[in-house]
Write a protein that binds this DNA or RNA. Structure first.
Length: 632
RNA sequence: GGGGGCGUAGCUCAAUUGGUUAGAGCAUCGGAUUGUCGAUCCGAAGGUUGCGGGUUCGAUCCCCGUCGCCCUCGCCA
């Protein structure tokens, strides 16, 4: 059999091993534990791995040996002397090399629960490479170990089957992405990690410069500007599995450093990028999940997404869509509705199927939720129920005439037994509140079919929005996003109505990627800058290199970035991206295994011309608890 | 930065209204055991109840503070 690693690894130190009472012999792995099969019965082979479990019957001893591919049972027999003695001394997570004949298991001793359960290796030679201390938890255990323990001893955690599989799966995803991009003419090009600070958007990690005292690099939030420069440079198509950094609060689907599949293409329009990425996703699902996705994913305008689902990343696996009933509710005698519509706002509803059975307490909880998202209150109407068939119940029903009630019921598509929830407010509040309640209720009422893979492209995003705090116009995506051609004339007259050539890829209500066609004309770029209140001087200062590049021959170009961590999390149906990242950080940005971040030597600080100031009184520079939770 | 949950043996969890020496399973150690596979049986060892303070005759339990982890809102062009 061919060597797995393609080269022999010299690890044989006879003297050392003999001193430790180990078995002599030079053995090189020729098989992986999880890959031994019936067809190999009768062959001699050598396995390497970790002791997953041992069962000592006084005579025969069974040891399950595990490597990243799986588990194989090894049998130690008394007649093998010192090999047997070694075998019966093995404990969990000891590292061993075992050679012997692969045999068919006896009748009745077959274990159908593991793929190698029909065979076993009869140990003829064995080497104990390293005795393991008792591990904090067993990788094969059935109990759920708390996440901080897992993170602290990640090397043990990664031996657990689900984690090993996640990392192997992740490898296949990135491999396939590279292959696909290569087939489509992309070049993989690295971009700098030490980058220039561009204080738009997310907070950046800063890196002090020793050679330029007082100056700083920043870690890139994404390689955005570099990939555009690569297009100007004529590379035509660029891809990178790129690490990105953002110093913002963490969530279960957010890490301070994360990975994107970053793409950029020249001489393309929106449809080209969408088509290419759709093809990539279809390939991934076909080859890795054995699911055939439709040839094209639905396109939905941002406006339609907001009107129907209240969010710009709709989960279309269930209905319960938003319904604007302003025209009807504005005619009613219910002051809250009437006033909201009169003030230029709206009345929106969702119809909760079977929701009439919700208790008053549950509805009150929804109201609390609604207020959290900015609503002043939540109106509710029960259809049918105590009020009688075809009637409406609840505190506001009495303000609604029979005619209005009929129209409402018809518009919202409700039937007896349903619950109407209504928000009367500004349009944005209506979207937000009902969009969030829809998702919450969708989960709560089990309306979501977990087997669906509902992809869609959200397009025609607004290019700009008004910053609530400053009142200024701000770019929604980034200031290099091209507006739709037909909206260009309105850039100055009605900027908030200008739509962008931006697109997001959404899967089951999760944004897994986004991109845009960029501006490649100087004239358009300066109009955008003046709209955003960025002076020529400011623009030069912040983005000089990009503006220069645009002057010296920029092709039309556009691209996209896919969030690798989220994508793989969804493919594997994990609850957190930490389950698909080898060494993730905690919610407070610390690494429990390495204890990063940590204080540094005073000399390191002085080399960098840095001084630590403004720490809380108790925390003098360089002093903090060394081990979490230990109080040490 | 705000809100919430959790913190007891190496791990997963118990512990009556605040009451005697804080228990169990797994892991570890010793012994038995020749077909197990979450092996089984007998025995042993293992604890600053995250840390600090307070209330009390008495605190794992109640109160305050603090640290850590998770969820969530803000935040993430």
């Amino acid at each position: 059999m061919k060597s797995i690693f393609g080269r022999a690894v010299r690890v044989f130190y006879p003297g050392l091993w003999r001193d430790r009472g180990l078995i002599k012999g030079y053995m090189k792995r020729d098989s992986y534990c999880g890959q031994v099969t019936r067809e190999q019965i009768g062959k001699n082979m050598t396995l390497c791995g970790w002791v997953a479990s041992y069962r000592d019957h006084g005579g025969v001893v069974f040891v399950d040996v595990r490597d990243r591919t799986g588990i194989c049972q090894v049998v130690f027999r008394p007649e093998t002397g010192e090999v047997y003695d070694l075998g019966r001394g093995l404990r969990n997570e000891d590292v061993v090399i075992v050679s012997g004949e692969l045999v068919k298991r006896q009748e009745g001793a077959i274990n159908p629960r593991i793929s190698t359960g029909e065979v076993e290796l009869i140990a003829a030679r064995a080497t104990l490479c390293n005795k393991a201390d008792p591990v904090p938890f067993l990788p094969g255990g059935h109990e759920t170990v708390s996440e901080d323990i897992r993170l602290k001893h990640r090397y043990v955690d990664l031996r657990r089957r689900p984690m090993t599989e996640a990392l192997m799966f992740r490898h296949r995803v990135t491999k396939l992405m590279r292959d696909y991009c290569d087939e489509h003419g992309f070049l993989e090009i690295e971009t700098p990690i030490l980058y220039k600070s561009t204080p738009e958007g997310a907070r950046e990690f800063l890196v002090p410069s020793r050679l330029s005292p007082g100056d700083f690099y920043a870690l890139p939030q994404s390689p955005q500007l570099f990939k555009q420069v690569l297009m100007v440079a004529g590379m035509d198509r660029y891809m990178q599995i790129a690490r990105c950094f953002r110093d913002e609060a963490l969530r279960s689907d957010r890490q301070p450093e994360f990975t994107q599949l970053d793409l950029e293409m020249s001489f393309v329009d929106r449809e080209d990028v969408i088509g290419l990425v759709t093809g990539l996703i279809r390939r991934l699902w076909h080859e890795l999940l054995h699911v055939d996705l439709p040839e094209a994913f639905p396109l939905m305008s941002w406006r339609e997404a907001m009107d129907r689902f209240g969010v710009d990343k709709p989960d279309t696996r269930f209905a319960m869509e938003l319904c604007d009933v302003s025209a009807i509710a504005g005619q009613s005698e219910f002051g809250v509705f009437k006033d909201a519509v009169a003030a230029g706002g709206c009345v929106k509803t969702i119809c909760v199927p079977g929701g009439a059975t919700l208790s008053r307490k549950q509805i009150d909880e929804l109201t609390v939720e609604a207020k959290q998202f900015g609503a002043r209150g939540l109106a509710w109407i029960k259809l049918g129920g105590d009020a009688g068939a075809g009637q409406m119940g609840g505190p506001i029903a009495k303000f609604l005439s029979p005619a209005i009630q009929q129209q409402l019921r018809h518009a919202a598509g409700g039937a007896d037994g349903d619950l109407l929830l209504a928000v009367a407010d500004k349009q944005e509040v209506g979207w937000r509140v009902l969009g969030e309640l829809r998702l919450k209720l969708g989960h709560q009422l089990n309306l979501i079919n977990d087997n669906l893979w509902n992809f869609l492209w959200v397009i025609d995003f607004p290019g700009f929005e008004r910053d609530e705090a400053t009142g200024k116009i701000a770019a929604r995506h980034h200031p290099f996003t091209a507006p739709l051609d037909e909206d260009l004339p309105r850039l100055e007259s009605d900027p908030l109505a200008v739509r962008a050539k931006a697109y997001d890829l959404v899967l089951n209500g999760v944004e897994i990627g986004g991109g845009s066609i960029r501006i490649h004309q100087r004239e358009v770029q300066s109009r955008i800058f003046s709209l955003l209140g960025i002076s020529q001087a400011d623009a030069e200062k912040k983005f000089a290199f990009l503006l220069d590049a645009l002057r010296f021959g920029a092709p039309p170009h556009g691209g996209i970035a896919l969030g690798m961590d989220r994508l793989i999390m969804l493919m594997l149906r994990r609850q957190s991206i930490r389950e698909v990242i080898a060494f993730p950080k905690t919610q407070s940005g610390t690494d429990l295994m390495t204890q990063a971040p940590s204080p540094v030597e005073a000399s390191q600080l002085s080399d960098l011309h840095l001084a630590v100031v403004g720490l809380p009184a108790s925390g003098a520079a360089g002093i903090k608890p060394s081990v979490p939770g230990s109080g040490a």
